[in-house]
């Protein structure tokens, strides 16, 4: 009985000459993606004029200098993102010092001292040590 009804149904449906439903086509839409341009959320939510100025410089650097740079930063967050975040979270004294320290560490000879960021694959070195994932013992 099951087979008969099913066959009848299929015979009826086979008379149609159109196979796709709208949802079936919609499912295929995700197969291609438009290229994504980076968004720098760290430059948003500025608390004062200094932060605004540094965020402006950061965006200027990212858009006009960093985009043209052949050498890629070894870290996540990148040195410029780290500098802006350090200035925002540590202030105008300790922030730039943390940024200079980071610049002197961005040498790619110290890879064993860091873990890799799961998304970017770069060395993970956040501003806040609490967020850091230390490497496992060898």
């Amino acid at each position: 009985m099951t087979r008969i009804i099913c066959t009848l149904f299929l015979a009826w449906s086979s008379l149609l000459a159109w196979g796709q439903s709208q949802s079936e086509i919609a499912q295929m839409r995700g197969l291609t993606q438009a290229p994504a341009r980076p968004q720098w959320s760290i430059a948003q939510d500025n608390q004062d004029e200094f932060q605004l100025a540094f965020s402006g410089m950061f965006l200027l650097y990212k858009n006009f200098i960093s985009s043209q740079d052949a050498s890629r930063c070894n870290f996540t967050p990148s040195c410029s993102e780290y500098a802006l975040e350090a200035i925002k979270s540590r202030g105008l004294l300790a922030g730039p010092l943390a940024a200079f320290d980071r610049l002197s560490r961005c040498t790619s000879v110290n890879q064993e001292d860091y873990t890799r960021h799961p998304e970017t694959g770069m060395l993970y070195d956040p501003v806040d040590p609490a967020e850091e994932r230390l490497p496992l013992p060898r």
Partner: peptide, 28 residues
Amino acid sequence: EKIQGERHRIFQQLLDEMTSQIPGKATD
């Protein structure tokens, strides 16, 4: 990126063309 973006647009337009031909699309 230019190729990727254009290819994305072309593929989506192909699917648009297919969608526009679905019989009784409005009620699906």
